[in-house]
């Protein structure tokens, strides 16, 4: 106690000596302004923007194949959806009184993703409506990017599926020689023709996309190229597509081995419908997938199981969309129960 009192009087005048005589002068013209902040002072070059735009780039192969197979309508569909998504984003930003966030690229992704999951002959006005619903009800109503529970593009698609069930399941032919001589304007997707007529589609056609189906989902190769690009950049968690595809393969094979006439083989499962597209682009959406590694496995396995169940036993030929949306809803719960064991924490 006494020492503190002894020392107190001494320090008081001294610090003044060290400072410049007139503090106001110092404020007016500092020798050198150094910026204070809390560590870490380094930051990676990765940003939300760079991640989002890499997804847009990853979607280019799928878009190119969509345009190759379905021609101009595909171009219009993509442009309409993107424009509607951007417009909705701007309006929502203005209504919420925040900065315009279209530069972050997430609205563009939603637009492209939605367009690529629609049938080629779908009405453009309806597509725009779906895009607007995706952005407003799918994203902004929850608070914007980062707060949404469900994948906005899939929510928009679910809305369209519920509103226009017939248009959403009418698939026009690709403009390729294979379909030149057919009289019918529309065809069935491989999943549909198997489910309702037990007709198999050629695997090579499914691989390159020479089949009926949604714009961006038909070509397995294009989707794979984009997806692997994302995985290499580590802008998508590899565990999610891997766990989905492995689960579908295993679960699908079990049924196939039980009754090959009744159930399709696992390769058919993987190449058909929107499974690859969903696994690489929809399920890996960072916002709506778990943040823990264990959670990512559970998430992917859950989607895989649901896809097979809906495809084989549900009323619809395709179940990727609902599987992902259901698991999106389960994501907060998965995050909660898959907390990693802390370094050095004892097993219990």
């Amino acid at each position: 106690m006494s020492e503190i009192e002894e020392n107190k009087p001494k320090p008081e005048p001294k610090p003044v000596e060290k400072k410049k005589p007139d503090p106001r002068k110092k404020l007016a013209k500092p020798d050198k302004m150094l910026i204070l902040n809390s560590s870490p002072h380094l930051h990676t070059t990765k940003s939300v923007k760079s991640i989002m735009w890499s997804v847009v780039i990853a979607l280019f192969p799928a878009m190119a194949m969509a345009i190759y197979y379905f021609g101009l309508p595909a171009v219009w569909m993509i442009l309409t959806c993107v424009a509607a998504a951007l417009g909705a984003e701007i309006i929502m930003n203005l209504m919420k009184g925040e900065k315009i966030t279209i530069i972050d690229g997430s609205a563009i992704i939603t637009g492209i993703l939605l367009a690529l999951t629609l049938p080629p002959s779908f009405r453009l006005t309806s597509a725009a409506l779906g895009s607007i619903v995706a952005i407003t009800l799918g994203k902004h109503i929850f608070g914007g990017l980062g707060y949404n529970i469900f994948n906005p593009a899939l929510l928009g698609r679910a809305f369209l599926q519920a509103s226009f069930p017939v248009a959403m399941t009418t698939w026009s032919n690709p403009i390729t020689p294979k379909f030149e001589n057919t009289d019918a304007i529309s065809t069935a997707t491989p999943l549909g023709s198997f489910k309702f007529e037990k007709i198999f589609t050629d695997y090579s056609d499914m691989l390159i996309g020479n089949i009926g189906g949604s714009l961006g989902e038909t070509s397995a190769i294009a989707v794979l190229i984009g997806g692997i690009f994302l995985l290499i950049l580590k802008n998508a968690d590899w565990r999610i597509p891997v766990s989905i595809l492995v689960t579908v393969t295993i679960f699908g094979s079990i049924f196939w081995m039980l009754n090959p006439a009744q159930y399709p083989d696992p390769l058919f499962h993987i190449l058909s419908g929107g499974l690859l597209f969903g696994a690489f682009f929809m399920a890996t959406d960072m916002v709506t997938s778990p943040i823990t590694t264990k959670g990512a496995w559970i998430f992917g396995i859950g989607i895989g199981i649901l896809v097979v169940i809906i495809r084989l036993f549900g009323g619809l030929p395709e179940g990727v969309m609902y599987s992902i949306l259901l698991m999106n809803g389960a994501t907060p719960l998965i995050n909660r129960y898959t907390r990693p064991r802390i370094f050095g924490e004892s097993k219990k």
């Binding site: 991640i51 914007g144 990017l145 960072m286 997938s289 943040i291 823990t292 907390r339 802390i342």
Partner: peptide, 29 residues
Amino acid sequence: TTDYKQVEPLACIGCGGCVQACPMFLMPT
């Protein structure tokens, strides 16, 4: 350093990058 750049924090997009980077296996976000 001359590299200081002011950046605005955005909302968490749930990428899980911090969870995978944490050497103590915590969930920083």
